[in-house]
Design a protein around this nucleic acid. Structure first.
Lengths: 334, 334
DNA sequence: CTGAAAGCGCTTACAG
DNA sequence: CTGAAAGCGCTTACAG
C-alpha cells in the first residue's frame, strides 16, 4: 500500500497538481478555481484518505507547524508540567510540539537546535544554558521566534518568560526572619544560570536588609552532575551545624534530597527548624508536616509563552521583544 | 547568511554534488574517489560548517535517525523517567528522540502517529491505547519497527516490553494477606488497557487463592479524565468502610491521591492499616511512614526497548517479534 | 575516478 | 479558470 501523493490525486481528478495544491491550501477561491472542481477534488482527497507529505511541504516552504521545546531535563516535574501545558495549548492552535532535554550539555543543546532547525521548526521555546548564545542569535537572525523561559541570557535581545526569582527568594527568607530564624542556610546548585543566581541574590539581599550577618558557610552549592547520594551526604554535612534554624532549597530536586537527608538524620521539621522548597512537588504537600514552597505559576508561564509564540507566528514583521516576569508565590503550609 | 547547500560545497570544491554526497555519506572509498578530492572536500565542509539538510535527505531516503516516542502523559514521572532513559541511550547511538503525549485520546494519538510517519521517523516506541490497532498495523506493514511498552495490544503481532503486572499485583496482595490483612481494597482506573486489567486480575486471583471472599465493593475504579479533587473524594468515600485494613493503588498518581485522602481524613498508616503503591514516586519514600510500592525496573525496560529498536534498525529483514516481560519488584518499606 | 540527471512530494510565479 | 515548469536539497542508478 504505497502512500498517495498529490500526483495520484491530480491523476484521479483529471486536473493538474497545481490545482490540487491550491485546493488543499485553501487558495481555491483566491485562485478562482471553479466550485465543481473544488468539490470533485475534495471528495477524492477525502475518499482516498490522502494526507500531504509534510516533509516535502516543509522543504519547500520552510515551515512545519511544529514548535520545538528544549528543556534542561524532561524528567524534572517543573519542566514536564510546563511541557504538558504548552503541548495542550499549542495543539489547540494546530501546532505540534517536539521536545528534548539538554542535560545542561552545551554540545547536546547545539545539536538539538540544529536538529530542530533543519527540520524547519517554526518557533523555539528554550530553557537555555550559557554557551549557546551564538546559536540562538543565528535563529533570531533567521527571523525565527525564540522564547527563552525559566532562565534568561542577558546578552541576547529576545523574548523571555520567567518568574521573579529574586523577589521570591527574598520573600522566603523574609518570612523565615519574621518567624525568628537567624541562621538561614541556602542549598543551591553550582550551575551558572540567571535564575539560580537570582535566587541566591534574593537570599543574600534579604539577610543583609534585615541586618543579619551573611555567613558564607551556610550556602551550599551542589554540583549539577553528581549522584543524589553524594548530594544527600553534603546536605547532612551542612546540617551538622546545629545553629542552622532554617533552610531554603533553590530547586525542587534539592529540596527532595534535603528531605531525604533529614529523614536519614531523623531530624524533625518543627518550630525550631523550618524549610522552604522551590517549585512544587507532590511530595511537599504530602510530607508531614507539609513543606512550604515557592511556587512558579506554571499555567501562567505556559500561557505567556504560547501567546508570545502565536503573536509572532501570526505576523511577518518582527515584534518588539518582551520580557515577561511573573511573580512566584510563596506558599506557606504547615 | 543563507544556509549552505551541497551545491555551494560542490562549487567551492570544483567537483560535482554527486562527489560531495558520496564523501558526506562515507561512500567515498566504495566509489573510488581519490584521496586528494576527499581531503579537499572534507576541509571545505569543515571550514564552512556545512550541515546536510536532513529534511531533504529524509524526503529522498525515507529515513531520519529519529525515533518517535508516544506516551500517555509526559508529566507522569513513570513516563518522563523512561523517556529520559531512552533518550540518553538512543543519543549515544546517534538517534534523536521526539516525544508527545496521547492523553488517552484516540484521535490525538492517530494524529501523532501520522505526524511522525510523514516525518519519516525510523522507529516507534508507543504506550498504546485501544483504537489505534489499525494505525500501528499500517506502520508494521510499512516495515517500520514498532515497540509497544507498558501496555500491549493483544491483537497485534509486534514487539512488546513491559512488566509482569499480574504477578506483581498478586504478590502485593499476598504480602498483605501474610501480614494478616483480610479486607483488602483496590483503587484502580477505569481505562481499559491490558496492564491495568492485569493488575486487577492479580489482585483477584490472590484473594481467591488465599480463600478470602472477593468483595466487589472494595474495588474502586476511578474514571481517567476527572479532577484529582473528585478522585480524592471518592477514595475518602471508600475509606468510610472501616473494615478495610489494606489498600493497593494501581498507579502512582492514584496512590498520591490516596495519600492526600488519608491526610485529609487524618487516618494513619500503621499496623492496622497498610497501603502499597504502584511505580515509584519520590513522595513514597519520603512519606512518614515510607510507602511500600510495586516498582517497575525503569532502567531494564528502557534498555530492552532500545535494544529491540537497534536490532531491528540494524537489519533489513524482519526479526521475529519479541514479548519481553520484566518482573516488577515489590519494595517493602517501613 | 567522476558527473549529469532523475526523482522524493510538494508550492508558487508565471503564462495563457 | 487552469497547467507546465522550476526549485527546495538531497541520493543514487547509470554512464563514461
Amino acid at each position: 500500500m504505497k502512500t498517495l501523493s498529490i500526483k495520484d490525486i491530480a491523476l484521479k481528478a483529471n486536473v493538474s497538481i497545481t490545482t490540487v495544491s491550491f485546493i488543499i491550501n485553501g487558495k481555491a477561491k483566491e485562485k478562482a478555481i471553479s466550485d465543481a472542481v473544488i468539490k470533485k477534488v475534495q471528495k477524492i482527497i477525502k475518499d482516498s484518505g490522502y494526507k500531504p507529505n509534510q516533509l516535502a511541504r516543509s522543504l519547500r516552504t520552510g515551515t512545519s507547524h511544529i514548535i520545538g521545546l528544549i528543556v534542561e531535563d524532561i524528567s524534572n516535574s517543573f519542566f514536564s508540567s510546563i511541557a504538558r501545558l504548552i503541548e495542550d495549548k499549542a495543539y489547540k492552535k494546530g501546532y505540534k510540539i517536539i521536545y528534548s532535554s539538554t542535560e545542561n550539555n552545551v554540545e547536546k543543546t547545539k545539536e538539538l537546535i540544529n536538529l530542530f532547525k533543519v527540520r524547519k521548526v517554526d518557533a523555539y521555546i528554550i530553557s537555555p544554558i550559557k554557551g549557546i548564545e551564538e546559536d540562538i542569535q543565528d535563529l533570531l537572525n533567521d527571523n525565527k521566534p525564540v522564547i527563552l523561559f525559566d532562565r534568561n541570557l542577558p546578552k541576547l535581545d529576545t523574548n523571555y518568560v520567567g518568574a521573579n526569582h529574586f523577589e521570591a527568594s527574598y520573600q522566603a527568607i523574609e518570612s523565615f526572619i519574621k518567624d525568628g530564624k537567624r541562621n538561614i542556610a541556602l542549598v543551591t546548585t553550582d550551575i551558572d544560570v540567571q535564575q539560580i543566581t537570582e535566587r541566591f541574590e534574593g537570599y543574600k539581599k534579604s539577610i543583609i536588609d534585615y541586618e543579619l550577618p551573611y555567613q558564607e558557610n551556610l550556602v551550599l552549592k551542589i554540583p549539577f552532575n553528581q549522584t543524589e547520594t553524594t548530594t544527600i551526604k553534603q546536605i547532612k554535612e551542612l546540617l551538622k551545624n546545629t545553629e542552622i534554624d532554617a533552610v531554603l532549597f533553590a530547586t525542587n530536586y534539592l529540596a527532595i534530597s534535603g528531605l531525604k537527608a533529614l529523614k536519614d538524620l531523623n531530624k524533625k521539621i518543627d518550630d525550631s527548624f523550618s524549610i522552604i522548597g522551590y517549585d512544587d512537588h507532590e511530595a511537599f504537600e504530602l510530607h508531614s508536616p507539609s513543606i512550604s514552597t515557592i511556587q512558579q505559576p506554571l499555567e501562567e508561564i505556559a500561557e505567556a509563552i504560547i501567546q508570545l509564540i502565536l503573536a509572532q507566528l501570526a505576523t511577518k514583521t518582527k515584534l518588539p521583544d518582551q520580557q515577561i516576569v511573573i511573580p512566584a508565590k510563596l506558599i506557606i503550609r504547615s
